[in-house]
Amino acid sequence: MSKDPQPYGDVSKMMIILSKATIDNVYACFILANGARMEGIEAEIFFTFFGLEAVNKKKLNHLKVATVGNPAMHIPTMLGGLPGMESIATNMMKKEMEKLDIPPVDEFLEILSASGVKLWGCKLAMEMFHLEREDLLDELDGILTVGDFYKRADREGTHMLFI
């Protein structure tokens, strides 16, 4: 029996701030946003700082996993710093994800947009990185300040996540 939505407690909207561009962080953000929509929960993503790379047309299909300073990779930091290590690790990860039907970044962004996830660029970070609107994905819903983004937390059950 599906229960009626409660005025308090239930998640009604997920607002996710993505500040990193390593592919594991980007996928965590995308899967959380998509998973929300699949449950009928609203979702929005605010791309800021390095997170902007995930919606940068030239960069989004070349995101990498971090092989240095990442103990969970289980390779010595010295080896992780060797040329090509990031690409090897990233390709291995992408293969595993494809097996689970997890789409590549560009297709994932299309899915998110088609699913009704609002995608926002951070105005200040864009100025900092000298990015123009046309550098970013066409599906982007707009450029916001932090204040604009907070204002979109307009209902009970809104939750914010910083990645």
Binding site: R37, M38, E39, G40
Partner: peptide, 16 residues
């Protein structure tokens, strides 16, 4: 398509 799927079943399309 995905957009249409959400339009047909707005509150969680695959679940519903």
């Amino acid at each position: 398509d995905i957009k249409g799927f959400y339009e047909l079943f707005p509150k969680g399309p695959l679940k519903t």
